[in-house]
Simulated scan of single mutants.
Amino acid sequence: MSSLPVQRAVPRHRICVMPGDGIGIEVMEAALPVLDALGLPCELVFADIGWECWRREGNTVPQETWDRIASCDAALLGAITSKPPREAEAALPLSLRGTGHAFVSPVIQLRQRLGLYANIRPVTDVLGEGRYRFTVIRENTEGLYAGLDFARIPAEFEPVLSGREASGAPWRRAGPDDATMSVRLQTRHGLSRLFRFAFEYARSQGFDRVTLADKPNVLRHSGAFAREILESVAADYPDISHHIDNVDAVALWMVRRPERFGVIVAENMFGDILSDLGAGVMGGLGLAPSANIGDAGAYFEPVHGSAPAYAGLNKANPSAMFLTIAMLLEHLGYRREAAAIQSAVAETARSACRTYDLGGNASTREMAAAIIARSADKAAGRLVSGFALNEEK
């Protein structure tokens, strides 16, 4: 009797992997084997992005990369190198210099082109005993980073500013070239989708509190606008409390009593600052993962930089990349495997096998190998300590 042909599993998910620059490449190479160790049916599609693309062709995100991103379910991004305009221009081939090529951050391009309006930064007590667990959700497209940043006062704003000056405003200027101006733009559409995302995230992660970090006592009208929208959205989530706190007070209490928070949501600049503070609360950028989510796309990246001075030294902490992969896997539905990685990272970071930034002397590859081994053991034995295994989606 003839045997039946072996039926091989078709990959369920395609992940676009963009290693990036500097230590981004090293931690990516060290961490990716965890997917095979966990036996996950994922196909990896590699694509170029970042500084070397710029140096080669004057474009940080080539069209082929956009095509590969579009063919995948999600993207995993390594750290990216960015430099000021003069240095960026000098790095181009001679044939491209002075031809109008402008360096645009790949991160900004991805967020804008893919409509990724929510930046998610979990803050967990990786180095301690699980005392706190909260998440900062930052708006990605509006606020003070909306691009309304002017080197001189636009003519359209002159009547407003001149009227304020005439009524006794404390600033003084000689004319439109004697000042710069940045505008905080917030729209009902942008805030509504951000707040709804924050409440949905809180519910899915078991948080019972959403805090808007703003400055309504100073930014009175835009603060009142955000409050009205927050209260309207919150009415649909009676099981989750909502609060509005001054952003400076939130920063203080993140350091003093991080356990008081669940989801912190903020406009672009406030969220940018608070999310990096959250990394400091955790123990450093080497432990900080992130996700960028939209209605029809997502990419995931550790938030440390490319650190060119450390590239090739095999000493960068790979933990943030592992925790970023865990976020990606949870997004794709592999919640148990994600929790296994999270728990493995926490145990390894508290063990003797840890990198220099955590007080150890392990190399990138050594710490990564330890995390991978623990991840596989935990996933196989269904033994994950320190992180809840909520399999309900």
Rank of each mutant, 00 (worst) to 15 (best):
P106F: 11
A70S: 14
D67K: 14
V123P: 03
L114Y: 03
R113C: 01
V61L: 11
A102T: 14
G130M: 10
E165N: 04
E142K: 07
A118S: 12
T99G: 04
I153P: 00
R86L: 14
M181S: 11
E139F: 05
D149L: 05
A102Q: 15
L194D: 01
R172K: 15
E129M: 07
N119Q: 01
L92R: 01
E158A: 15
A174E: 14
R184W: 00
L144H: 00
A151G: 14
V136E: 08
A166I: 05
S182P: 00
A155D: 15
V61S: 02
H101Y: 13
T81Y: 04
P170T: 06
A179N: 06
P154K: 07
A91W: 07
W66H: 08
A118Q: 08
N119I: 03
L144R: 00
R111K: 12
A118C: 11
Q63I: 10
V107D: 12
A174Q: 14
Y132H: 12
A179F: 10
Y132C: 07
E156W: 06
P122Q: 02
Q109A: 08
A169N: 01
G130L: 03
A74V: 14
W66K: 10
G98V: 09
I80N: 03
S182Q: 02
E64I: 12
E139L: 01
S82A: 13
P84W: 09
E158N: 06
A146I: 00
W171P: 04
W66V: 12
R184V: 02
A70G: 07
